[in-house]
Design a protein around this nucleic acid. Structure first.
Lengths: 160, 160
DNA sequence: GTACTATGATCATAATACTGAATATTAGGG
DNA sequence: CCCTAATATTCAGTATTATGATCATAGTAC
């Protein structure tokens, strides 16, 4: 049977079941839930991740910071520019290497991070709530395994 | 212990383990693998999904098509415009309701869809390859369960 | 010291994803 | 028939995510 002669709905049904498609939808949902829950703090998921990475690793240059949360050079540049604009981080050029800009959290950045953390943890828990504890563990294990195995394939691999 | 007094690395380590963060990275990886594998066909994941949905449901108006693959009105508009520009789909205004534009696949759109399908199926299989068959089943079950439970939360819920 | 290479950041461009506002059209109530 | 509500699309604006190109700077080879 040729692909074009399949029964009605067969192709579309297959797409609905594809991991890539479900993954996109869940990512869509996760971002939506994050933004709703953290509305008061006015931080996007990426801005939050960057703040958290900065808290434990500052000072770092942009490229390294991007590697810590798996963002390519351009994207991390946009995120950090936004953080700087809002007074949550600073960028300072190094004397010894004037190509690099070292990123640091401001006191205000620390405050915002501390304030948003409980809400972030809450929304993460809510995301997996439809699964029972056992399923949650297996799901997270699988997620870690697949991400770890394919890390190098990503355009912006995690670098630790 | 106050949040700001946690041990070094604790916040950042927690972020790395959050489902939202891992989900974003896996989505990143899935798109990257899709584009690499399907490079010859020059289709993005969304363009492919729209073609597949059209194949089994055309003619449909834009809003309905968006509902079929969980895209909001604006995004589906951009995707369909791109498909039309490339001669893979047509938009025609209905006589009876001139607000709606009915979308249809062109013969060329059918061809491209048939040509890309084996590659898409291959890349989906490769994505889950790090998991053994049992783990793959459980992962997909969990994915379906979580997406299904949160569908209404999404800004662009699936409408069947 | 000059040339080559590597690195860090930025710019232009594009696709994905959403909100809120505007526009056009249809349908229903009076 | 007119006003209003609902619907379909588009537009403007923002954020996420990437590529390729460019620019400045640094390090190395000769």
């Amino acid at each position: 049977m040729e692909p074009s002669e399949r029964a009605d709905e067969a192709v579309f049904d297959a797409v609905q079941e594809m991991p890539g498609h479900l993954l996109r939808r869940l990512q869509q949902i996760a971002v939506s839930m994050f933004l709703a829950e953290c509305r008061d703090h006015d931080l996007t998921p990426l801005q939050f991740a960057a703040l958290a990475a900065l808290r434990d690793n500052a000072p770092v240059d942009q490229a390294t910071l991007g590697g810590l949360i798996a963002l390519d050079r351009t994207t991390i540049g946009v995120v950090v520019a936004k953080l700087e604009e809002r007074g949550l981080a600073t960028r300072t050029v190094l004397h010894r290497d004037r190509r690099s800009k070292m990123i640091r959290l401001t006191p205000r950045g620390m405050q915002v991070l501390d304030a948003i953390l409980p809400d972030v943890e809450h929304v993460q828990a809510r995301l997996l709530e439809p699964l029972d504890p056992d399923e949650q563990r297996h799901f997270m294990d699988a997620l870690r395994k697949v991400v770890g195995a394919h890390n190098a394939v990503s355009r912006a691999p995690l670098r630790s």
